[in-house]
């Protein structure tokens, strides 16, 4: 009796989802076709950037999980408008760096080349700079890169794929045990 009531309640709650306010709607590739503040070219650069931060290995990376769309969605809705310009300009700058260092587009660079371009921003103390002219003044990573990295990690770690395959996420644990042995 009790169980039946519970099941009924849960299914009722699922039915309640149709009353969701617009901002609470779930998103997927199709619902994310919002007007982009990036040009198609900049969009490609962002895809390559998130793919460099969390690449495809034997498991899906940020690009495979559409994290670039999440990054754009966040910057469109949750940040001041100037952050959008900052990202667009930053991507252009990244492209210039690739052209100067490797004579090709950032999107055409090999994974090793892309990581090398970003390394000074990741570990600012590294002395080997790919281009003295462009990078000499960079004591700290540019804000756009820090933000994209932060959002990429957030989007990746809270993605359905990672939460269901790699972290111990469960919506209904059903219990709490206060003292269990650590398993390796």
């Amino acid at each position: 009796m009790e169980r039946r009531k519970v099941l009924k309640n849960i299914s009722l709650a699922a039915g309640g989802l149709i009353t969701l306010p617009a901002w609470a709607q779930g998103w997927n590739r199709s619902s994310l076709s919002f007007p982009s503040f990036l040009t198609p070219r900049q969009d490609d650069l962002l895809v390559a950037l998130v793919d460099t931060i969390i690449p495809t290995t034997d498991t899906p990376g940020a690009k495979d999980l559409d994290i670039h769309l999440f990054v754009q969605k966040m910057i469109t809705d949750c940040y001041e408008p100037e952050v959008q310009d900052n990202l667009a300009n930053g991507l252009v700058r990244l492209e210039e760096m690739a052209q100067q260092s490797y004579n090709t587009s950032f999107t055409e660079c090999s994974p090793v080349q892309r990581e090398a371009l970003l390394t000074p921003w990741v570990t600012p103390l590294t002395p080997a700079l790919p281009s003295e002219d462009l990078m000499a003044s960079e004591a700290e990573p540019p804000a756009f890169f820090t933000l994209v990295k932060e959002l990429t990690i957030r989007g990746y770690m809270t993605s359905e794929y990672v939460m269901t395959h790699h972290t111990d996420y469960t919506m209904v644990p059903g219990h709490f045990r206060g003292c269990v042995p650590v398993t390796a």
Partner: peptide, 18 residues
């Protein structure tokens, strides 16, 4: 009760801005 708990069964990835 239940009907008006729109987010009660949503997973973290179902929130547009997490």
């Amino acid at each position: 009760h239940i009907r008006d708990y729109p987010t009660a069964n949503k997973h973290p990835w179902e929130f547009a801005h997490r």
